[in-house]
Simulated assay, not measured.
Amino acid sequence: MKIQRPRRSRHSWLVAMGLVGEILVTLAVVCALYIAWQLWWTGVESEHTQLATRQTSSWSDPGSANGSVKIATAQKGDPPEQPTGAKVGDLIAQLYVPRFGSAWSRNIVQGTTNEQLARHGVGHYTNTQMPGQIGNFAVAGHRAGYGEPLAHVDTLKQGDAIIVRTKDYWYVYRYTTKKIVLPTDVSVIAANPTDPTSAAVKRMITLTTCEPRYTEATHRWISWGELEYWAKVSDGIPKELATSSGTSAVKFEEQSQGSVLARLSSLRPVFAVLLIAYAIIYLAALAVWRYPALRAIRSGAKPRPDFSLYGSLYRHQSGIAPIRWLLMLVLGIAASAAMFEWLFPWMATNVPYLQLMSNYVSVQ
């Protein structure tokens, strides 16, 4: 005759508090995952898009001799203008800022729409000049999330190189100064930002991004630079991108590989693989062990626990304890992948507060 263990009794309000606690913990985890999606995964997606764009372009690597990249000669005279025109979304240049890292670079595409800034790196204001033209080559980029191309503009120092590479030419600018303005102050991207009513006399670059970095972008951080010289890509690389030994610290062929995660175009295959793995493990454990946790409770070997969301889910996994924990882990990762792929992009697009927190940056 089996001895039935008495059921542990708890007040209903304690059970309710436990459920509320589980819900609050779940919401906290979802919030943490949303932050990870915003600040990290959107950058992976942006890197993937930029990598794909570079791979489909016909741009060649800088000129080299004997397997080593040469230092391009600084050219005299007025620089060539390139490109002379572009459609929204076209790759027009690449941006290099050694202050941000020896291998740091971002694509520059035509246009500053949300799509361009979120997926393609840095966007060029279509109503401003192109590289090499007298006037202001003005671009915008995110400061948090989406690869955060301009996250560290606050570290720029006077004289730092800001380098733009088009298909055939290098344009080396020197950082001069900054200014924090309201989004409505469009004079900062004028052809002559120091005096918008006068004709342009310099060849300038302007970097615009959000301020402050991690909250609603109430202002814009403006960074200006002036052209120092230009060079031919066929001659090599600017000295600012070279190490002291004269070899390149930034290699285009290495950049074209991208990170492992950046090669994923979507998390859907990951989600599908996780679900298949879960089904295989679940069914195998079901055939061997069935539901030992539920069997122990029903037989009286263990007391019947109070209801809880995660406890109930855990007990309904098949197999012994290590297998059940493995199944719970696979489910958790699959749920996270689903949120990254579908839930969080929807939230950032449709929830008003999260739209503000997305930090889309363009001077209106």
Rank of each mutant, 00 (worst) to 15 (best):
Q4A: 04
R8D: 05
S9C: 07
L24S: 09
A28Q: 11
A28H: 05
W37C: 13
G43S: 07
V44M: 14
S46R: 09
L51V: 01
R54C: 09
S58W: 03
D61T: 06
G77K: 06
T84R: 15
V88C: 08
Q94D: 12
V97Q: 15
I108P: 06
T112D: 00
N114S: 08
R119N: 07
Y125R: 03
T128G: 07
P131N: 05
I134R: 14
H142S: 05
H142D: 07
V153L: 14
T155G: 09
T155W: 06
G159W: 09
G159C: 10
D168A: 05
W170E: 04
Y175C: 02
T184N: 08
T194C: 00
E211Y: 09
R213L: 12
W221G: 12
S223Y: 00
W230D: 11
V233D: 00
E240Q: 15
E240R: 14
L241N: 15
S248R: 01
S256F: 00
S256W: 05
G258N: 13
G258E: 13
S266L: 01
V270H: 01
F271G: 13
F271V: 13
A272D: 12
V273W: 13
L274T: 10
Y278C: 06
A279H: 08
Y291K: 13
A296D: 15
A301N: 13
P303I: 06
D306H: 14
L309W: 10
Q317G: 00
S318C: 09
S318E: 01
L326I: 12
L326S: 13
L327P: 04
L327H: 02
I333Q: 10
A334T: 06
A335Q: 04
A335L: 13
S336L: 06
F340A: 07
M357G: 00
S358V: 01
S362M: 07
V363R: 02
